[in-house]
């Protein structure tokens, strides 16, 4: 029973891909209008998505069954690997929030300020850097990069609706 549950635990990614495949399969009727099989080819706009989503589900199911079967077959001696190095998911989540905030704030506060905030928070999250480095890097990546992109490449980044 514990083999079965640990097998299922190892299959979490496959369960997720199975669910995503099922979601796409279920959403095809609402997401792709049915105009029939474009008259000549016998293949409609829905055919490939159905095949792909179906194949994702089949391969995911296969992976789940294979993982559970492997756990049932394995002996305790088979699973004495060294534990993987610890990942600090909290920091990854904070970095995600920082980038997402940059995307949300950019139209309002503009590239320069948003970038200074993002670089400062990312460098603090990574650690092992001084405040001088943080100030220098964040300033270097904000105003000069913004000006360079505008002048040389004619790429204009948002200046911020709050300052218009």
């Amino acid at each position: 029973m514990s083999s079965l549950s640990s097998g299922l635990k190892d299959s979490i990614p496959s369960i997720v891909t199975l669910l995503v495949g099922a979601f796409f399969m279920a959403s095809i009727p609402s997401q792709i209008a049915d105009f029939g099989t474009d008259g000549l080819s016998g293949v409609s706009a829905r055919t490939m998505p159905y095949i792909i989503a179906g194949a994702i589900m089949v391969f995911s199911l296969f992976s789940i069954v294979a993982a559970v079967w492997a756990h049932i077959q394995s002996t305790p001696a088979d699973t004495t690997d060294d534990p993987p190095p610890k990942t600090r998911y909290g920091l990854v989540f904070l970095a995600f929030i920082a980038i997402a905030s940059w995307i949300i704030l950019l139209p309002f506060i503009g590239y320069n300020i948003a970038t200074i905030l993002l670089i400062t928070s990312i460098m603090l999250i990574i650690g092992r850097c001084t405040w001088v480095q943080i100030v220098l890097v964040s300033l270097a990546l904000s105003f000069p990069v913004n000006s360079l992109l505008g002048v040389v490449l004619k790429v204009y980044l948002p200046s911020g609706s709050l300052f218009d």
Binding site: S14, T17, V20, G21, F24, S27, Q31, I32, A33, F35, D38, S41, S44, A45, M48, P49, I52, A53, A55, I56, F59, S60, F62, S63, A66
Partner: peptide, 30 residues
């Protein structure tokens, strides 16, 4: 893991289907 590789490839194919259908012009997964 060949099955993981195939699942990854299938997701790549699925992503490639997003957008207007190249032949009949209907939007897919928009």
């Amino acid at each position: 893991s060949l099955s993981k590789g195939f699942v990854a490839a299938l997701f790549g194919l699925l992503i490639a289907t997003v957008g207007v259908d190249p032949l009949v012009g209907v939007p897919r997964f928009s």
